[in-house]
């Protein structure tokens, strides 16, 4: 069972306090978008055996959403960051590059 640090309240808590929200950084298309773009938004999700950027909510805690970079196989957590970040912060990308290089 994962141990996750919530970036909003700083608490380090077990997975049962959190609710997963699926893949992160999916943009909601504009109302007039094409069927293809909208289908992509609704249905297309990655399922990598690798680093995954995902959304979580501290559901039993402070109630805040946040992002997490997690390896789906090793379960290594490379970092958590704010829910309104459009992409992972550089330091997390660097850590991932460093940790997955070898």
């Amino acid at each position: 069972m994962l141990l996750i640090q919530c970036p909003a309240c700083g608490v380090e808590a077990e997975e049962t306090e959190f609710a997963p929200g699926g893949e992160a950084h999916i943009l909601r298309p504009e109302p007039g978008c094409s069927d293809a773009d909208f289908a992509m938004y609704l249905f297309e999700r990655k399922n990598p055996r690798a680093v995954h950027y995902e959304r979580w909510r501290h559901a039993f805690g402070c109630g805040k959403w946040f992002h997490m970079a997690r390896h789906t196989h090793t379960l290594e957590i490379f970092g958590v960051y704010a829910a309104d970040a459009p992409e992972p912060p550089q330091e997390i990308k660097d850590r991932i590059a460093e940790r997955t290089a070898s």
């Binding site: 909601r28 805040k64 829910a83 309104d84």
Partner: peptide, 13 residues
């Protein structure tokens, strides 16, 4: 309530 907060926190912040 969680649904509203989700949109406020993650889309229309």
């Amino acid at each position: 309530h969680a649904w509203m907060e989700e949109w406020l926190q993650t889309e229309w912040f």
